[in-house]
Design a binder for these strands. Structure first.
Lengths: 191, 191
DNA sequence: GTCTATAGTATGATAGAC
DNA sequence: GTCTATCATACTATAGAC
């Protein structure tokens, strides 16, 4: 568990993460994950006893990756404005996948909400990671009390962009809206 | 079919519509719909042979209702600006349900996209109804070439608001963002 | 750790009586 | 039109050999 490389377990998580994003959690079966990883269903159950456990592992993995990404954005840019732009630009970086599958965070939370799944609060932590990080950047930009409102507004816009790009299968729309967001960030008046 | 009142069929569609919204399409079983309507599964299959057929019927029903709503908004207000406000205000009108289940259009399209379901294009017509209607209002407001971009921007914002209100279980956020949207509509400069 | 069965259950769908 | 079976399948999960 701790000493070995965990390579099979990691491969399961990685593949499950991908399939949950592309097909949804409920719509992805153990059999398919096992098949695509190249192991038997029996072996799969050695690593994860229930479907909730694999979902938890996937969410935890995403949390770790997200934290690493946010930390990278922080160190790569000294100015908070540039850091916020890093967030906005993931819409461009991932535009092909977003067009196909929407936002990985938003679509997962939306599905878990419908399923009334207990892992919803765990998945929501992903949103909260972005929220806390962005809020800090807005605060450093000079926005005091409005930092969280600005953050929620930005998160909201990015969710809307992902949803419509997915629904209308439209990458150009993402580019246009990202420009609007960038202008908004540049020109927001009150501090 | 045509002469009778179709009451059982209509009740099935109505209940399926509700359950698909609250629990998702894939996660809602025939058995549950039948049970909640108060009929047997066998009777259910008399009215709808496959799950795709009931989904089609639900989407068609939503299209009819949406068209009626848009037509009502048109006749209730003579000014295009007021009509657009009618659209924005459904976020307030339905804030309790949006908090619980998200946007009925966005969440359905998102799910069908993940399922790679053939009914996705049918469901997208719902988005298109709003898009065409809003575009017309913006054109009458005096926006020529930008009408569709403004429409997509507005649709995008409403989707984002619904997604975040659902994820964070937050109605106050809806109210705040609706005010921003209303201000945006009032103050948008270029025509 | 990995495999091959296999159990148990839920679901979509059908057959046939009334 | 509505009902009571019933079938077939897919999926979650388990047992036990290697």
């Amino acid at each position: 568990m701790n000493t070995s490389q965990n390579s099979t377990r990691d491969r399961i998580i990685e593949k499950a993460d991908e399939l949950f994003y592309q097909q949804g959690f409920d719509n992805t079966s153990f059999a398919q994950i096992a098949s695509e990883v190249g192991i038997s269903k029996g072996n799969f159950y050695y690593h994860f006893k229930t479907k909730d456990r694999i979902l938890d592992a996937v969410i935890s993995s995403r949390i770790i990756k997200t934290n690493a990404m946010l930390e990278a954005w922080r160190t790569e840019a000294s100015k908070p404005q540039e850091r916020i732009l890093s967030f906005i630009n993931i819409l461009i970086m991932n535009k092909a996948k977003i067009k196909k599958y929407g936002c990985p965070v938003g679509s997962l939370c939306s599905e878990l909400s419908k399923l009334n799944h207990e892992a919803l609060s765990h998945a929501n932590e992903l949103f909260t990671l972005f929220r806390v990080w962005l809020k800090k950047q807005f605060e450093q930009l000079g926005y005091k009390k409005q930092a969280d409102e600005l953050t929620m507004h930005l998160l909201s816009q990015s969710q809307g962009i992902a949803t419509l790009a997915n629904a209308f299968n439209n990458e150009a729309f993402i580019k246009r809206e990202v420009k609007l967001l960038t202008n908004w960030l540049d020109n927001y008046p009150q501090k």
